[in-house]
């Protein structure tokens, strides 16, 4: 019987295994629902906002983010990203990365994959690739739905930045692409924590929860001004730096720092995950 380690657990197989799970459907539905809910709230929420929704050439008069959101599809997308990065995307990224190995352990199917044998490094590699693909899809679904919903609800006005500048067509899409890419990179950290914990524990919820709690913890530390410049070193400190892509010129350095720290922590944690998993006694 011929056995080829490089043919074990192909990406497509693992993708089907994960994609067909109910949590995938729920997470993706949330990504679609968020923009719809916000549009519904804006459209049904009193007459104050209607002035901007149907003409909008004298500003909204409100400084709320909702006011910004109703300026057009691109603006709506930016505001949806702002809403989602706080918590929703964090949870989704933690979910996809966090229960990938741990849930396999909790179903007892992990031992049969490893005894097949799927080499442990390959198993982790494929699982990570599939988790990150599902994460990417989540972000893309959010962005595309937001853009479409925004287009139908508020039209295709140029991206209007709250810090000066109006971006038309291609420029607006370019800025959205940068923002999406940066958000994905900052969420690498969350994914890596969840993934590492997923390798350590057999409880999927534990892995996801640890990542989310860590993110909350760092956010709290980040809010303590007594820590001063030390906060610059906290993971997630630069998670909102994508707003720098909304200036008339893009300023890169905060985004560069945020991306660097997220990628480095991602690599460190993934390395630890590999080290742990390669030597682990599989007791599940």
């Amino acid at each position: 019987m011929k056995y080829l380690p490089e043919k074990t657990l192909p990406f497509s197989v693992e993708f089907i295994r994960q994609f067909r799970r109910r949590r995938t459907l729920v997470a993706y539905s949330l990504m679609v629902l968020l923009p719809l809910l916000v549009v519904a709230a804006v459209k049904l929420g009193g007459s104050a906002d209607e002035g901007t929704a149907d003409g909008g050439n004298f500003g909204s008069g409100t400084l709320s983010l909702i006011g910004l959101a109703t300026a057009g599809a691109a603006n709506f997308t930016v505001v949806m990203i702002f809403f989602a990065t706080g918590f929703l995307l964090t949870i989704v990224f933690a979910l996809f990365a966090g229960d990938t190995v741990a849930s396999e352990a909790s179903w007892s199917s992990l031992r049969y994959l490893l005894a097949a044998p799927v080499p442990r490094r390959r198993l982790l590699g494929i699982k990570l690739a599939v988790a990150m693909t599902l994460n990417l899809f989540a972000l893309l679904i959010l962005i595309l739905t937001s853009y479409l919903v925004g287009l139908l609800a508020f039209g295709s006005s140029p991206l209007v930045s709250p810090i000066g500048g109006t971006f038309t067509g291609g420029e607006a899409l370019f800025r959205l692409a940068i923002i999406g890419t940066y958000v994905f990179i900052t969420l690498l950290f969350v994914s890596a924590v969840a993934f590492y914990m997923s390798v350590r524990t057999d409880v999927p919820l534990g892995a996801v929860g640890t990542a989310v709690i860590l993110v909350i913890l760092f956010a709290i530390l980040d809010a303590i001004s007594a820590l001063g410049d030390l906060r610059n070193w906290l993971p997630g400190h630069y998670s909102q730096a994508w707003t720098d892509a909304l200036g008339s010129q893009i300023t890169w350095d905060n985004m560069a720092k945020g991306a660097a720290s997220s990628v480095i922590l991602f690599l460190i944690l993934i390395t630890f995950a590999y080290l742990k998993f390669e030597r682990k006694d599989i007791m599940s």
């Binding site: 019987m1 011929k2 056995y3 080829l4 380690p5 490089e6 043919k7 074990t8 657990l9 192909p10 197989v13 693992e14 089907i16 295994r17 049969y112 994959l113 097949a116 799927v118």
Partner: peptide, 11 residues
Amino acid sequence: DLYWRATGRTT
């Protein structure tokens, strides 16, 4: 079916 496809066997 998926398990079989994950085992890397060519038969």
